[in-house]
Measured scan of single mutants.
Amino acid sequence: MSIQHFRVALIPFFAAFCLPVFAHPETLVKVKDAEDQLGARVGYIELDLNSGKILESFRPEERFPMMSTFKVLLCGAVLSRVDAGQEQLGRRIHYSQNDLVEYSPVTEKHLTDGMTVRELCSAAITMSDNTAANLLLTTIGGPKELTAFLHNMGDHVTRLDRWEPELNEAIPNDERDTTMPAAMATTLRKLLTGELLTLASRQQLIDWMEADKVAGPLLRSALPAGWFIADKSGAGERGSRGIIAALGPDGKPSRIVVIYTTGSQATMDERNRQIAEIGASLIKHW
């Protein structure tokens, strides 16, 4: 067993022997301040990774656009098919120029040779490549099948209805392509620590998230040296922004954090800054 596999296998073990965790309302004060600064709703939840206990939450059962955070769930569904012998990570998928959609920095470079399922998941999570996500959605049967996968996990809230990039439209009061912070946090925890996926697939999923290259201005910008984070960000229309993450000190994750916002007129930089400040408060009061 590799060191990384050992780390993920012992996530519940280490967490069980940690000192009790206590909620700190100071972080919620910052979440509410972010709402004021952005002029928009902000949803927040913080779960203990081992027990699933909610440590703090704000608007945990209000719907927010998922945006690209759905790509972690998508690759979880792909990995479940791999575990069941219905898919192979090494299978190569070929596609054409007509398949390319807006923001496809990886797939646009491989029109000639195609990409493997493993490479597509890596591109979808680490670079948020939209064509990679659409190609992977095709392998599982489309958005409705991802929703069905989530329902089978016990998540009857999260739903995907459309493809990239239309799913980022974020129309107010439109339930399409949305989740709730509580539902997303619980589902992410199941994917990373539950028995739904094999140990190898859980490790692969967290490795992809740990290698995320496009979430630097968010929670990662607030992390002290030595902290662990595996995350996936999302951005959408109407001032929408979000991030889902597993993080913790001492090089291992111990909490799940989900943050979503929508309806702001603020710039992307300002949305990023507010999420980073929430992260800084979380870490300060850990």
Rank of each mutant, 00 (worst) to 15 (best):
E119F: 02
T186E: 15
G263M: 06
A266G: 13
M153C: 15
L223W: 03
E102P: 14
T179F: 00
S201N: 12
R273E: 14
E87N: 05
T126I: 09
K252F: 10
D212L: 02
M67V: 10
L100K: 04
A16M: 15
E164A: 00
K190C: 10
R92Q: 09
V21W: 05
E119M: 06
R63N: 07
M127K: 09
L47H: 03
L167D: 03
L160R: 01
T261D: 01
D83Y: 02
H94K: 14
W163L: 13
S104Y: 03
A15V: 14
R81E: 07
K53Y: 13
V21I: 08
T69K: 01
G76W: 05
D212T: 06
C18W: 12
H156P: 10
N50L: 12
R176C: 09
A77D: 09
A77T: 08
T262S: 11
I278V: 09
Q274D: 04
Q204M: 14
G52T: 05
T69W: 00
S122N: 15
E195R: 11
V72K: 00
A183P: 07
F13A: 14
L19S: 15
M180A: 14
M1V: 05
A185P: 00
Y95P: 04
T147H: 07
D250V: 10
G194A: 12
L160N: 07
T267P: 14
K213S: 10
E102R: 10
A222S: 14
M1A: 02
G141C: 05
L55M: 15
E237Q: 14
E175H: 14
I256Y: 03
V82L: 05
S240A: 13
E35T: 03
D155P: 01
I278W: 02
G263V: 04
F22S: 15
G234S: 07
A200P: 13
E119N: 08
D83I: 03
G52S: 07
I11R: 05
D48T: 05
D99G: 06
Q204E: 14
I275T: 03
F149M: 11
L135R: 04
G234N: 01
D48P: 02
F64K: 01
M127G: 06
A230N: 01
I140P: 00
G279T: 07
V82Y: 07
M1R: 01
N152P: 04
G85S: 10
I171T: 14
L223Y: 03
V42H: 02
H5D: 09
C75W: 00
K109W: 09
S233N: 01
A225L: 12
G114H: 05
V42G: 01
N130L: 02
T178R: 02
V258T: 07
M127N: 08
M67R: 01
G142W: 01
L150F: 10
R41W: 07
D250H: 14
A124N: 04
D231M: 04
H151Y: 14
D99L: 08
E62F: 07
T126S: 12
I125A: 04
S281F: 15
